[in-house]
Design a protein around this nucleic acid. Structure first.
Lengths: 209, 209
DNA sequence: GCCTTTCGCTACAGGTCGTAGCGTAACTCC
DNA sequence: GGAGTTACGCTACGACCTGTAGCGAAAGGC
């Protein structure tokens, strides 16, 4: 009955191969680079990973969830070093995010899974938890740091702060994605500088009230 | 040899059925609403339109191009009435664009075709010509109108003006898309007001230099 | 050693893609 | 009105992908 007495939480039997896990995710990224989202197939990934197709389906229900997990780890690279000013912090995070979007894996996969998520609530939640929230933390940290520097005024109502964080996040991330994938123009230093200048001006003007 | 002597530019034989054209595009939108992008199939669309599958392939090479054309006409609704101030103009266009993105056809299709376009240059061009440029014209018109009102300074170098238009476009469109599809939060009046306030503040601060 | 779970393999039904071939319908030009 | 040309609906088809089922073998816990 009660078998929760071992380190694996009561699970008995042969354990999942962690080598297979990493091999599958690596193979998925490689397939994304070579084939792109639409031509990637489960059978192909299994072949690259040296794994049976059934092994994939034991771990992921479909292509969408597999690709989300394969791409999510790339977002671990995102960091927010203290560069001394809000302007520099924004520019840095914009260029960092843009570099991520330039990679063929993310470029082809990110929009595709978001598109799928409009009709798949569990998928949306998975994306939020493993990708979106990870980006959003940078916005939160950057805003707090700027307030401590005195570059932004202290806003008292918590609801207003959260709304501002949401707005900044959608503006920055949305602008970068739109520039890179829709307009298909380079996200380089001059553009990042213009964007952060626009944003800083807007935040400063809001503070004037 | 030279048969270009009739109103159809020299084309002889049975003409394409325009009824079939409109029926197919309507059926495509209906299929997008019911099934979403990923489950939409060419055979299903053909059935809904009361048309043979081969007729679809005579007009569109694949699902991507068909869907782009089916969705593109919805963007004809976008307009930029003169509401008296830049702030009001921005809020209006933001809410208008958001309403378009709330429709199930565009919600599921837009991101998907953009994702596909990252690996399909002709498709990207098709999207640009029939969707993106149509939106961008609104930005251009709004910026010019604001300058005539004196709400924005006259910038002399043409290159700077074009860069500013690009930036505003990516910020506005990107923020709305990101808010609606990634964050999955409502694009309502309060949010539109905050976005336009941020933007106006940024543009005003830039003018101060 | 026994039990449980995962593994690789094969096979399979169901569905989609995109094309080919056919006879027929519609329209233009002479 | 006939000849030529193109579009149409229909059927059939091979190729491919999906997701599942069944099998014997392997790998771990108790």
């Amino acid at each position: 009955m009660c078998k929760r007495t071992n380190p694996r939480g009561g699970r008995t039997g042969r354990p999942r191969s962690t080598e297979a896990d990493t091999a599958i995710l690596e193979a998925t990224r490689a397939a994304l680079v070579e084939l792109g989202w639409s031509k990637l197939t489960m059978g192909d990934v299994a072949g690259r990973a040296g794994v049976a197709k059934t092994t994939l389906y034991r771990r992921w229900a479909n292509k969408n969830e597999l690709v989300v997990d394969a791409v999510a780890v790339l977002f671990d690279e995102l960091e927010l070093p203290d560069l001394g000013s809000l302007q520099a912090d924004i520019e840095h995070v914009v260029l960092q995010f843009a570099a991520l979007l330039e990679r063929p894996e993310t470029k082809t996969a990110l929009m595709a899974v978001v598109a799928e998520s409009t009709r798949d609530e569990p998928l949306r939640e998975r994306i939020r938890a493993s990708i979106v929230d990870r980006q959003k933390r940078l916005v939160l940290a950057g805003r707090e740091r700027a307030q401590q520097r005195g570059e932004l005024p202290d806003e008292h109502p918590v609801s207003t702060v959260a709304a501002l964080d949401d707005l900044i996040f959608d503006v920055v991330a949305g602008a970068v994605v739109h520039r890179a994938l829709v307009s298909a123009e380079p996200v380089d230093e001059p553009w990042a500088a213009r964007l952060s200048a626009l944003l800083l001006g807007g935040l400063g003007a809001a503070a004037a009230h």
